[in-house]
């Protein structure tokens, strides 16, 4: 086994351990009263986990520019859908 292969396997294991630690963190944070920041912190942790999975398990860095555009667009449309709808609901009298 070459060094590069060993490094790749080690990366997978490290990312896996980090993901498990973040599961512990998200449960731990839920036990503390953070007021309105509770859901925000929970979603931030989930976002970091999703990012780790996309970068290291789904190898998004190795994909083509066109694939990148589609991933970015998917997230952009999702953002527009969630943010504009919530902007409406949260500002109703």
């Amino acid at each position: 086994m070459t060094n590069r292969n060993a490094a790749e396997l080690r990366t997978y294991l490290l990312v896996f351990v980090a993901l498990l630690a973040l599961v512990g963190a998200t449960v731990g944070v839920a036990l503390i009263d953070l007021g309105p920041f509770g859901p925000i912190v929970a979603l931030l942790i989930a976002g970091v986990k999703a990012g780790l999975i996309m970068v290291f398990f789904m190898h998004i860095r190795k994909t083509t520019k066109v694939a990148w555009i589609f991933v970015a667009l998917g997230l952009l449309w999702l953002f527009i859908m969630l943010s504009l709808t919530m902007a409406d609901y949260l500002t109703r009298g």
Binding site: T26, A30, L31, D33, P39, L43, A46
Partner: peptide
């Protein structure tokens, strides 16, 4: 998981 299971576990 956090959205469904972990709302306000404290208090």
């Amino acid at each position: 998981f956090p959205l469904l299971y972990l709302i306000n576990l404290h208090g």
